[in-house]
Structures are given as structure tokens and as C-alpha cells.
Design a protein around this nucleic acid. Structure first.
Lengths: 130, 130
DNA sequence: AATATTATCGCAACAATGTTGCAATTAAAA
DNA sequence: TTTTAATTGCAACATTGTTGCGATAATATT
């Protein structure tokens, strides 16, 4: 029963997530933490946060990996089945907590996780795109 | 109006896709082509095939990138909105052409592409997992 | 408060994946 | 056959992610 600790770096990362409205990549987090900690440490913090269901991982079609804070809690097991929107112009990725896919899959598959990412133009860029 | 050419390497890659029932990664293709061509060439072939809608790109939750042949044709613009299943055990990724997500997204978003990947256990591994 | 335990960190080294520029090659059009 | 330009190989580089291990520090224990 590994206990998880609250370290300076982890707290800083969580605070950054708190302030951000969009999903963040490892590189973006590193830029914001400056030289507070090592690059590897951030990888490990993210790994822990994902395991603890505090943050979820998002993979975009272009291969970009980002992370966002989970907005649901108190659930033993939860699947992040909401959609993520990836804007091709501003490159921001946002959680669409209310958009959830419904689908029918043959019963001989066991689904443990879902990645549902939509890409295109976000409301902001759609407007400024006249 | 860049025309696309049929080269030895491209033909070989297409043949490999034809024979494979699952999606293939760059590394897997490289292994199968042997020393027929350079590593970079394969990247560029895949890029072209994706642009020409002959192959589609699949990004898994673990960051793995794979490619699979498109099984629909004669459509001007087509979105690969079918699901992909990624087995956590055998690591194979297969297209579930018949599984398509339905969802409702606010109208101020413009969707150009979709990535819908389910991960878990495929029928094979689910059986041998007793 | 002091000590023990062990999760976490920093560093270095490595591996995988993907990108770019440019000269040489070659498929396809003329 | 000649011309055109798409494609290739090579080399060099960038990014992203991983691993081992000794040092550090958060938390539990005494």
C-alpha cells in the first residue's frame, strides 16, 4: 500500500493545473515550473497523478500528449469517457465534460479505457477565422 | 497539383498493409520492409498515404501511433469516425469499422477529424485469460 | 523532538520516434 | 528520348519518454 506524498513539485504542478482552463503537455508544465525541479520529476509526478485519478491523460491525433485535471471525484473506478477537443489552429485541448460518446461494441470485447478526441476549430478560432 | 507517384517502396508498404489484419506502426513496417528503403522514406510514404486517404492514422492512449488501410473509398472527404480497439495484452490495434460513436457537440465547434480508441482486452486475449 | 522508513528527486545515460535540408535518383509526362 | 519534379538516402538534429541509483526529504514511529 504505497502511500503518496505531497512534495513541493507535486503541489506546484497541481496548482498549475488548477489555474489552467485547457489541458497541458509535459513541456508546458515544465516551462511553468521553471527550474523548480527536474524534467524527469515532472514525468513521474504526472504518472502518479494519473494513477491516483487526479489527472487524466489525453492523446491527440497528431501524437501530442496532454494532461488535464479530473473534475469528477469520489468514484472508485472511473473512465474518462468524455470528449476532448483539439483545436487545429490554437492547438489547445479542452475537456468537453458534457460530450460523451454512445456506441455499441460486440460483447466479446472488454473495454477498460476510452480515448475520444475531436479535432477541428474551437469556438474562438472559428470566429476569428472570417 | 502535386501528383503522387508509385514507387517500389510505396508499393511494398501498401502490400504489407494489404496482408495485415491489424494496424501497423512505423517500426513494424520498417521491420517488414527490411533494408528496402530508409527509415525516413517510410515516414514520408505514410504521410503521403494519409494525405491521400489511403491509410488512416491511429493514436493510442499509450501514445503508440499506428496506421491502417482505409476500407471505404470514393468519398471526397471522409472522416475516420469508426472505433479502434487497442488490446492491452497483445498490443494489437484493430479497426472496428462498424462501431461508430454518436455524440452531441455544441454547434460552435467545427469537427474535422475524430479519434475514437477503446482499450482493454480483445476477444482472443479475453479467452486465454482464464 | 529525534529517529526510522521509504517515497521522491536529481542526474546521467539511454532509447524511441519523428523532422529537416540537400544532393542524387527515378517515375511519369512531354 | 528528354524533361520535370516527386521521391529517396543520408546525415544531423529535436523531442519525448525511460531507467538505474545514490541522495534527499516527507511522513510515520518511537
Amino acid at each position: 500500500m504505497k502511500t503518496t506524498r505531497n512534495t513541493v513539485a507535486k503541489t506546484a504542478v497541481l496548482e498549475i493545473f488548477g489555474k489552467s482552463k485547457t489541458a497541458l503537455s509535459h513541456a508546458e508544465i515544465q516551462k511553468q515550473t521553471g527550474d523548480l525541479c527536474d524534467r524527469v520529476t515532472i514525468y513521474r509526478i504526472l504518472e502518479r497523478l494519473v494513477n491516483d485519478d487526479i489527472v487524466h491523460k489525453i492523446v491527440n491525433l497528431d501524437g501530442t500528449v496532454k494532461y488535464a485535471k479530473c473534475h469528477h471525484h469520489a468514484q472508485r473506478v472511473h473512465i474518462h469517457n468524455h470528449a476532448h477537443f483539439s483545436c487545429e489552429k490554437c492547438l489547445e485541448i479542452t475537456c468537453l465534460e458534457n460530450v460523451k460518446p454512445s456506441y455499441i461494441i460486440p460483447h466479446n470485447y472488454k473495454v477498460n479505457d476510452i480515448n475520444f478526441t475531436l479535432s477541428g476549430l474551437c469556438p474562438n478560432c472559428l470566429n476569428s477565422n472570417i
